[in-house]
Simulated assay, not measured.
Amino acid sequence: MASLGQIIFYILSLVQSLNRLPVANLGKDYMLSCFLPPDSEQSTLQEVSVTWRKESLEGVVYRYEDGAESTSEQDSEYSGRVEIFRDVVPKGNASLLLRKVRRSDAGKYTCSLSHSGGSGKVNIILRTAAFTAPTFTLSNGVLTAEASRWFPRPNVTWLDADDNVLQGSTDLQQSSAGIFRVVSTLQSVNVSDIYTCSIKTELVVSHSDATVTTDSDVTMETYFTFNAASPLIAPYLRIMCVFYVYLL
């Protein structure tokens, strides 16, 4: 027979998240996932309440109880910027939509979900950054990569098809909001060759493979990797999640 401690651990572990160490793009909307897995869902949960909190924040980020949103204790930073999808809450989905992500949104969040059959919670550490896939142009043998939004300050590296580092020239233009626009050029490129432009910060890396098809045309493919290492987990643990963006 399971001990009381084992039963409590099992109940708490039922609440899950698709990504407990996400990186959200500044200025964009982001969904913090929190849910009961399918094998623990009932067709309809009864007496459901959901509370989202953020570490070091006195008020709550969001609260749902008695079938409605409760704003009495909500911190002003999140007023009008967060919501859950009430039609799926009775099925155990308490995911939170955070609108127009700000740098100050970074931190440790706790999603607590309770219903008539039990309760549980999950912690999520949100990091924030700005990142966009670059666009490429080709003129007079010069390949140019431009990316409009990066934060923090990125590093740019050019590679050839054999992963040899090439000598490119990069200009970083910082806006009043601290966001960087990246313009990087590579001289004397050859038709039919493939060049890789890597834009990197401590959280996000974009890898763009640009193929020079003619003297004035280039095709590209970009994917992002996200570093899931966190000071709150073992320092040697590094997980790379991959997100693909195809540009035609």
Results as ranks from 00 to 15, higher is better:
Asp215Ala: 05
Ala68Ile: 12
Ala68Phe: 07
Ser76Leu: 11
Arg99Ala: 12
His115Trp: 06
Ala147Gly: 02
Glu65Gly: 15
Lys121Ser: 10
Tyr64Gln: 12
Val23Thr: 08
Lys200Met: 00
Ile11Gln: 13
Val165Asp: 06
Val88Met: 10
Asn123Val: 01
Tyr10Arg: 10
Ile239Trp: 00
Pro37His: 08
Gly118Phe: 12
Leu186Glu: 14
Ala130Ile: 03
Trp150His: 05
Glu73Thr: 15
Leu32Ser: 10
Ser49Arg: 03
Phe131Ser: 04
Leu166His: 00
Phe226Trp: 05
Asn227Tyr: 13
Val212Tyr: 02
Asn227Ile: 13
Phe136Lys: 05
Asn19Phe: 01
Ser176Asp: 11
Ile239Met: 00
Asp209Lys: 02
Gln16Leu: 04
Ile239Ser: 00
Ser70Cys: 15
Gly80His: 04
Ser17Leu: 00
Thr51Cys: 03
Ser148Glu: 15
Thr110Asn: 13
Ser43Asp: 05
Gln167Trp: 03
Gln46Ile: 00
Ile124Asn: 02
Ala147Gln: 09
Asp217Thr: 11
Tyr30Ile: 07
Met220Gln: 15
Val245Pro: 02
Asn155Asp: 08
Gly141Arg: 02
Gln46Leu: 12
Thr71Glu: 09
Glu41Phe: 07
Ala24Pro: 03
Met1Pro: 11
Thr170His: 05
Ala147Asn: 04
Ser169Tyr: 00
Val61Ile: 11
Ser188Ala: 08
Thr71Ala: 06
Tyr244Val: 06
Lys121Val: 00
Val23Asp: 03
Thr225Trp: 10
Ser184Asp: 11
Ala133Asn: 12
Ala210Phe: 05
Tyr223Glu: 14
Lys200His: 07
Glu77Pro: 02
Asp105Asn: 10
Val204Pro: 01
Phe85Pro: 02
Ser40Ile: 08
Asn19Lys: 09
Met31Leu: 15
Ile11Leu: 15
Ile8Leu: 06
Phe9Arg: 12
Tyr195Asp: 04
Ser13Phe: 03
Ser79Pro: 00
Gly178Thr: 04
Ile233Trp: 14
His115Val: 02
Asn93Arg: 14
Ser139His: 07
Val189Cys: 11
Ser13Leu: 07
Tyr244Pro: 01
Glu47Thr: 01
Leu186Pro: 04
Leu96Pro: 09
Arg153Val: 13
Leu203Trp: 11
Ser17Pro: 05
Asn227Leu: 13
Tyr223His: 14
